[in-house]
């Protein structure tokens, strides 16, 4: 093994351990939705994350934590959303929207978006459409 290869392996090990030492925060699973159920949420957009590998709508609506529960609603990838007519400007914080989604099987405040109706009367569709 050449010196640069050893150096590379050691540098990789050092970088790995450095990154591994930073503190973690809580994350929910994105893979456990109940596809037999459809739940409708009406509320206010807190944040619209236009990002890969998939977008998120953070919406304040009634839920498990009371009338102003923050829900994390998972959308498709940017490629798919763009082809369905969505854009980074589809929603902004404060927008009143109504959306349908497949909820988490464990009852936590998250879901898999199917369709969103905006306050000005147009609809955006995602999964299952």
């Amino acid at each position: 093994m050449k010196l640069w290869q050893t150096g590379g392996a050691v540098a990789l090990a050092a970088l790995s351990l450095t990154l591994a030492a930073t503190p973690a925060s809580a994350h929910h699973s994105a893979a456990m939705f109940d596809h037999a159920k459809i739940v409708t949420l009406s509320g206010t957009v807190k944040e619209f994350k236009w990002m890969n590998p998939h977008g998120w709508i953070q919406i304040m609506a009634p839920g498990p934590a009371g009338p102003a529960t923050e829900w994390s609603i998972e959308c498709s990838s940017i490629n798919i959303l763009a082809r369905k007519g969505w854009s980074s400007k589809s929603f902004k914080p404060g927008d009143k929207i109504s959306l349908s989604m497949h909820p988490m099987k464990d009852g936590s405040a998250a879901g898999f978006v199917l369709k969103v109706d905006t306050a000005d009367g147009h609809s955006l569709t995602d999964h299952d459409y």
Partner: peptide
């Protein structure tokens, strides 16, 4: 990603693979 536990585990496993390889070769 830096805060994702699976990502961190991946880096640790990569580091272990690299150390194992370096030790074996050396």
């Amino acid at each position: 990603y830096a805060a994702n536990p699976a990502f961190r585990l991946k880096l640790v496993a990569l580091a272990a693979a690299g150390l194992n390889m370096a030790l074996f070769h050396r």
